[in-house]
Structure formats: structure tokens, C-alpha cells
Simulated scan of single mutants.
Amino acid sequence: MNAPNTNTTGHDERTPVLAARGLVKRYGHVTALNGSDFDLWPGEVLAVVGDNGAGKSTLIKALAGAIVPDSGHLLMDGEQVSFKSPLDARRHGIETVFQDLAVAPALDITTNIFLGRESRSRGFLGAVLRRLDKKAMRTEAAAALTNLGITTARSVTQPVETLSGGQRQAVAVARAAAWSKRVVILDEPTAALGVRESGQVLELIRRVREQGLAVVLISHNMPQIFEVADRIHIHRLGRRVAVVRPQESTMAEVVSIMTGALPGNDSSVAEAPSAQQVARP
């Protein structure tokens, strides 16, 4: 599990940490991605918005390794990469929290955070008997929650099925942040949550960014997007049509670009947010 990232990785912050160029994905006669581009900069929260059928879910699945595009390519730190599965994306430091969370309700918080990546005891017990080092995992799980300011769970031994919707989301995000090296992708993280729990998740997103990780936020909730995002990627008809900054655009303008009522402008979207914008409260 990673120690908190403080953006001192040595990577060139003038280069997108994750980018896509000309992605195409077809399902029969339906073109889900039609030459889609994408740029995510280190240490930013990038919101991805689009109307139903715009192709944003397909784009995110391509970035997460869940689907393989028919053409186009992905880049990390300017180097071309190929993801054949979500495991490939994970190996490159990308963790995704899909809308279904993929948590195991009957298992406790620690087990969920380490699911599929369990730590084994040292020596004979771990190598031969494959005994799990539960004490070490509980310590690291508690640290992962503390690093993100998650204090609502009673104990890391608490079963996930006893948690509220917001707490379950927090566990899923904590797992992603704990294992990610570069990027965390969050698919509708506040869907079906109340106002209070949604606010807690937004604060959690800010804390993930403070750890030096770049965040991709897929959401339909425009007020929340304008509250937490540094930039907004607008997707329409299978491709990026604009990227805007919340400080320079209105919600009405973003919706108009999404629906085609206003033209997009994809000419200078690769500009990185300034340090002041990324560090804004």
C-alpha cells in the first residue's frame, strides 16, 4: 500500500499524466467513441460530463482498461500504453471506483480494502501455510482511512453491510486511493446519496487530490462538479467537444455545449490548470 502522495514523483507536470488520442469504439452499427481525445493533468480533479449516449462511459471504460478501443491510443506521462484489462490499468497506477462500488458487504472494511491484494505473514506461515497478516492489514487500513479524514466508521473490523451509503462509498474511494500511484477514476460517486453524505464524498475527493493523485470524476450533478472540479471535459456524440474551467463558465453554458445548443471549442483544451487553481480550497 502506498504512503500518501505529495506530488513529488518527479514526473513532468507539463505532460498529462493520462491522455487519449483519437479513440474509436464501435458496437455493431453504433459508434460509441468517434475519435475521442482526453487529457488529465497531475494533481487535478477533471470532471467528465455528457448527455446520455454521449460516449463518456465508454471513454472511462477505455481509460480503466475495461474495454479495448478499436483504434486510437492511450498515453501515460507522454508514453504510449496499452490496456487489455483493468489489471493492466492498475499496474500503471490507475484505480477505478465504478458506480456499483464492487465492495463485499458481508466482509469487513479491512478485507474490502485489501480484497485481492492480501498481505501474508512472513516466513513459513505466509509462504507455506499462506496465513494472512491480519494485524498489519488492519493497521494499514486504519491509516488509509485516517489519511483521507474518514472518521465515521467505528472500526476497520466493521462489516461493510452495516455502513451507510456514504460510508460504503468512502471505503471504496479509500481502497482506490490507497493502491493508486497516479490516477483515481470515480464513476458517479454521489449517486443515490443524500446532501450530507454527498458533501462528505466531495470532501473526500479533495483529500485524494491533496495526496497528489489526479482524479477523474464522472457525474451528472452540475452543482457538485462546479464545487470540486478544476476543469470540465464535455463529451458529445462520441468525442470531446470542449474543456472549460468552472471559474470561467456557467452551468448553463456547460449544459448548452453538452446538448449542442452552443458550439464546443476543442482547440486549447490541453492547457494544464495553474498551481493556484489546483490548490484552491
Rank of each mutant, 00 (worst) to 15 (best):
A174D: 10
V30E: 06
G116W: 03
V201N: 01
S155H: 03
E227T: 11
A174M: 05
F226A: 06
H233L: 13
G116L: 01
S82V: 12
N52P: 06
G238C: 08
Q224C: 03
A102L: 10
P189I: 05
G123P: 07
A178G: 02
D100R: 02
A32Y: 10
T111V: 05
T9C: 06
R168H: 02
R239A: 11
H73Q: 14
L262E: 14
G199W: 00
R236Y: 10
F98C: 00
P263W: 03
G10H: 07
P159M: 09
A177Q: 11
E140W: 08
Q158S: 10
M258P: 12
I225L: 11
K56R: 13
A64V: 07
R207T: 14
A142T: 10
T110A: 11
V97Q: 06
N5I: 06
A279L: 03
P42G: 05
G199D: 01
T151Q: 03
H73Y: 15
R245N: 05
A214V: 09
A64M: 08
V156H: 04
R154H: 13
E188R: 04
L18F: 10
R231W: 05
A279G: 04
R120W: 00
L107R: 11
H73F: 15
V195W: 00
P16G: 10
T8G: 04
H235Q: 12
Q224W: 07
P246C: 08
R245G: 03
A127P: 00
A143Q: 14
D12G: 03
R231M: 08
Y27T: 07
K84C: 07
M258R: 04
T146V: 00
K135E: 15
A20R: 04
A252L: 03
D133L: 12
V215F: 13
G50I: 10
G264D: 06
G212N: 09
A229C: 05
I205Q: 01
S85Y: 04
S155W: 06
N2T: 12
I234S: 03
R138P: 00
R131E: 02
V68K: 15
G50N: 12
E248G: 01
E210G: 06
R280N: 11
Q158E: 15
D88Y: 06
A270D: 08
E140T: 07
L40M: 08
V184L: 08
D70W: 11
A153E: 07
R207A: 15
K84A: 15
S219Q: 08
V49R: 04
R209M: 06
P42F: 10
V228I: 13
A64N: 12
E227I: 00
G35Q: 13
V49A: 07
A142Y: 00
V24Y: 15
R122S: 14
T9S: 14
P86I: 01
V269G: 13
L33M: 04
K134R: 10
E13I: 13
P42R: 04
G10Y: 11
E253I: 00
S71H: 08
N2G: 00
G149Q: 02
R117K: 10
G65Y: 09
K135D: 14
E248A: 14
L237Q: 12
A102F: 09
L115A: 12
A177V: 12
T6L: 15
F83R: 11
R120S: 06
V48F: 02
R245H: 11
G93T: 13
V208W: 05
V103Q: 13
N112T: 08
E140K: 09
P4W: 07
R240E: 09
G126K: 12
I218M: 07
